[in-house]
Design a protein around this nucleic acid. Structure first.
Length: 216
DNA sequence: TAGGCCATCTGGTCCT
DNA sequence: AGGACCAGATGGCCTA
């Protein structure tokens, strides 16, 4: 395993929603990912063909493989090549969406590009964090102005979704927002810890999050 | 050199 | 039938 620099795995969780010196409590630590290998020069590039002057990557059966020289009929080969083209396009679209997602996540400018899995995990945790922010703000307002007629300016995300979704109780004590790590979660917060990248751990009770989990 | 990350190819399956 | 989606395989690039 590649030794990842370990720097306070739960640091960002600890100053999450607190008066943090960081502009955003969810920022990934730049040192960690800056040390990660690999993904800046080629990974997720909008145009992979530009990578190191190579024309394409990986297997090139298109040229000499099964779809090429082997006994594949011209029609079949044509279908295969078209399918390959669509698949390439589909993956490019997926990567574009991933790039767009990276664009709205708070990271340091000089930070290394998030990997795909990091992007998804980070986005998941970021959403969770924002949700918690809203919930706590709502709690504060409710405490300041108690009354039956109180109408919250914030969505009541944790008390039943707007679309009739099941309640979204977070399994962790809201007073200690740090380290809501669930070892059972397929988002593998432990992986993040092992990598020295302190992502906020997921809250997987909401159906949308379950779907997100499936997606990952 | 090993391991991580990634793009691409490919065949199978499901959907329209 | 054709396209979308998926997962496995393969191999390149990069860093420690």
């Amino acid at each position: 395993q590649k030794p990842k620099p370990q720097t306070a795995p739960n640091q960002q969780s600890h100053h999450f929603l607190a008066s943090s010196p960081s502009p955003c409590p969810l920022l990934l630590e730049p040192g960690n990912r800056a040390a990660r290998g690999g993904s800046t020069s080629q990974g997720g590039s909008a145009c992979p063909l530009k990578a190191k002057g190579r024309r394409g990557r990986g297997k090139s059966k298109n040229d000499a493989g099964a779809a090429g020289a082997l006994g594949m009929s011209k029609a079949k080969r044509s279908r295969r090549m078209k399918a390959n083209d669509r698949e390439r396009n589909r993956m490019h679209n997926l990567n574009s969406a991933l790039d767009a997602l990276r664009g709205v996540l708070p990271t340091f400018p000089d930070d290394a590009k998030l990997t795909k899995i990091e992007t998804l995990r980070f986005a998941h945790n970021y959403i969770w964090a924002l949700t918690e922010t809203l919930r706590l703000a709502d709690q504060s307002i409710a405490a300041a102005a108690p009354g039956p007629s109180h109408e919250s300016p914030f969505p009541q995300i944790d008390s039943g979704g707007p679309d009739g979704l099941a309640p979204w109780p977070c399994p962790w004590d809201s007073s200690s927002l740090c380290s809501p790590i669930s070892p059972e979660g397929s988002l593998s917060p432990t992986d993040s810890a092992a990598e020295g990248r302190p992502f906020l751990a997921p809250c997987l009770r909401h159906p949308a999050q379950a779907a997100f989990q499936d997606f990952i």
